[in-house]
Amino acid sequence: MSDKPRLMIVDDEPIVGKRLKRLFEKEGFAVETFTRGSAAIDELKKKHFDIVITDLMMGVVDGMKVLEFAKANCPDIRVIIITGFGKKETAAEACHKGAFAFIIKPFKIDELREIVRRACSALRKPPTG
C-alpha cells in the first residue's frame, strides 16, 4: 500500500469526496478526503501526499490556502484546483502559485481522471494497478 501514490481530496461538498474517493481508489491511489481546508492542511503537515485535488471556495480556509501551503510544504506536489465558478483572475492566480490544473465544476469524470493521470506521469511514478 505504501507505494501507491497518495491523493488528497478537499471539498466542502461531501458528495464530491465520496464519489472521487471511490473513483481514484479504483485508479490505484491511496485517497483521503477532507471537507475543511484547515483539516487538510493539518494532514499535509503530518503526511506526504503526491496529488491534491481541492475545491477553491470553502469558507475560511479555502483552496488557495491549501495550494499555498502544499506548495510551500512540498514543492513537488501536484495541486489540481476545482472551482464552481471560473474567473480568469483566480485561474491566473492559482497557476501563478503553482497549481497543476484548474478545473471548473461541473466537470466530467474523464476530464478529471485524465488530468490526474497526467499529474501522475509528471511525477514519474505511475500508479500501480
Binding site: I15, L20, K105, P106
Partner: peptide, 8 residues
C-alpha cells in the same frame, strides 16, 4: 455544486 454533484 449540486450540478457537479449530480453529474459526478
Amino acid at each position: 455544486n449540486p450540478l457537479n454533484n449530480i453529474s459526478l
